[in-house]
Design a protein around this nucleic acid. Structure first.
Length: 157
DNA sequence: CGCCTGGCCACAT
DNA sequence: GATGTGGCCAGGC
């Protein structure tokens, strides 16, 4: 089953199998908006629980642990590629690999790869484009000026 | 194999 | 800060 929603004016198509969410795509326009599903989507995004949940099973095992770790970053906060690397591999040497793993994220927004930034607090990259990354962060109340995230939103894992 | 690339990082200037 | 350099890693060719 698919649901089209407009999250903060960002049009999304969410793919589900029963209560499992396994894929999300960015759309061009917000023509449709499934209000009931949007409510559940917001609950999952902000509170981490809903009748729906994230399906990690089909995600490539080599990047699954990284995405599961990213999933734990709370709403309204950010962390760095190096911090994810340190958490998963006990060293920041995997920072680049973390970046490439995030570019393969099948469930953007809900697996919040937009909350991962570089060590200088710059957004650095996003498969959907940096503008969209900034939009997603601001929607969560995160302040950005001159391309840099205010450091009080930064957390360690 | 070697070589390049990518959503990085640390260090030096 | 703004650059430059070197080092890390897995994946693709």
């Amino acid at each position: 089953m698919n649901y089209k929603i407009c999250y903060e004016e960002i049009p999304l198509k969410v793919y589900t199998d029963g209560n499992k969410i396994y894929k999300i795509e960015f759309l061009k326009t917000c023509k449709e908006n499934n209000i009931d599903f949007l409510a559940e989507f917001l609950k999952l995004l902000k509170e981490g629980r809903s009748v729906f949940f994230i399906d990690f099973e089909k995600i490539d095992p080599s990047i699954r642990l990284i995405l599961e770790t990213v999933y734990k970053i709370p709403y309204g906060t950010v962390t760095t590629y190096g911090e994810i690397s340190k958490k998963v591999f006990n060293t920041n040497d995997y920072a680049r690999f973390v970046g490439s793993a995030l570019s393969k994220n099948p469930i953007p927004v809900l697996i919040p790869c937009h909350r991962v930034i570089d060590r200088n607090l710059r957004l650095h990259g996003f498969s959907g484009g940096l503008t969209l990354k900034e939009k997603l962060l601001k929607a969560e109340g995160i302040e950005i000026k001159n391309g840099k995230v205010d450091k009080r939103f930064l957390i360690n894992l």
